[in-house]
Simulated assay, not measured.
Amino acid sequence: MPKIVELGERPYVALRGKVAMDGIGAFADRMGEVIGWLAAKEIAPNDAPFFKYDVVDMEAGLVLEIGFPVDDLHSGEGEIVTGVLPAGRYATVSHHGHPDGLMEATRDLLAWAEEQGLEWDADGAHWTARLEIYRSDPREVPDMNDWDTDLQFKLKD
C-alpha cells in the first residue's frame, strides 16, 4: 500500500542520458561507469542505486539519471552529473519482483495519488524527483524476480 513520507535533501552522483523506452536496459548497463567514477574519486555511496526520471515522454523518450546518493555535493564531469534530491513529501510504494513489474507498480501509484487528491511536483512531462530505488544487490540476489525496489515520487509542496 502506498504511503506518504517526508524525506530530507540527498546529494547524489549519476550518469544522465536521453533514452528511448526500449533503451532503458542498455542505459542501466552503464551503471558501472558511475561506480568507476565514484571509486576513482574515493566517494562512497550512502544508499542504494536509483533511476531518476527527469522527463517522462513515452513518444519523445526519457531523460534519465542512474546513480547513487552520497554524503556531500560534488562536481560532475562529462556525462556524470551531480545534484540534490530535494527535501519534501514523497509518495512511495515498495515493489517485490522483477523490474518488468515496475510499470504496473508506477501506474498503481499514480492512480492511488489521483484518488487521494495529491499533486505531483511536476510540470507536464518534467518531474522534480521521480525515483526507482533498487534495494537488492544483484551480487547477493541474482534472481531479478526476488528484487525489492522502492518508488519515490515527490509531491508538490
Rank of each mutant, 00 (worst) to 15 (best):
P2E: 05
K3W: 10
K3S: 14
I4F: 07
V5W: 12
E6I: 08
E9Q: 14
R10L: 15
R10Y: 13
Y12H: 10
V13K: 08
A14G: 04
L15E: 00
L15W: 02
L15H: 02
L15N: 04
G17M: 04
A20G: 08
D22G: 03
D22L: 02
D22H: 02
G23D: 02
G25N: 09
A26D: 12
F27Q: 02
F27C: 06
A28T: 01
R30E: 15
E33R: 01
E33F: 03
V34H: 05
I35Q: 08
I35H: 05
W37Y: 11
L38R: 07
A39Q: 14
A40H: 06
A40R: 10
A44D: 07
A44T: 03
A44P: 02
N46H: 12
A48F: 13
P49S: 15
F50R: 03
F50D: 09
F50N: 07
F51Y: 11
F51Q: 10
K52W: 10
K52P: 00
K52G: 11
K52H: 12
Y53D: 01
V56A: 00
V56L: 03
V56I: 05
D57C: 03
E59I: 07
G61P: 02
L62D: 00
L64S: 00
E65W: 04
I66E: 06
G67S: 15
P69D: 12
D71T: 06
D71I: 05
L73M: 10
L73K: 07
H74P: 01
H74Q: 13
G76R: 02
G76A: 06
E77N: 04
G78A: 06
I80K: 00
I80R: 03
V81D: 03
T82E: 05
G83T: 01
G83I: 05
V84I: 14
L85A: 12
L85N: 03
L85V: 08
P86S: 11
R89K: 15
Y90F: 14
Y90N: 06
T92I: 13
T92K: 11
V93Y: 06
S94R: 09
H96A: 13
G97L: 10
G97M: 11
G97Y: 15
G97P: 06
G97T: 05
H98Q: 09
D100A: 15
L102V: 09
M103R: 04
M103S: 02
E104R: 01
A105R: 06
R107A: 10
R107I: 01
D108L: 04
D108S: 07
L109Y: 07
L110D: 00
A111F: 05
A111E: 08
A113K: 09
A113Q: 04
E114I: 09
E114N: 14
E115W: 06
G117T: 01
G117V: 01
L118D: 02
L118S: 08
D121V: 04
A122C: 09
G124I: 03
A125R: 00
H126Y: 12
H126P: 01
W127S: 01
T128P: 00
A129F: 04
L131A: 11
L131P: 02
S136G: 12
S136D: 12
D137C: 15
D137Y: 14
E140N: 15
V141P: 07
V141K: 13
D143H: 11
D143P: 03
M144Q: 15
M144W: 10
W147C: 11
D148R: 12
D148N: 13
D150H: 05
F153L: 08
K154R: 14
D157N: 06
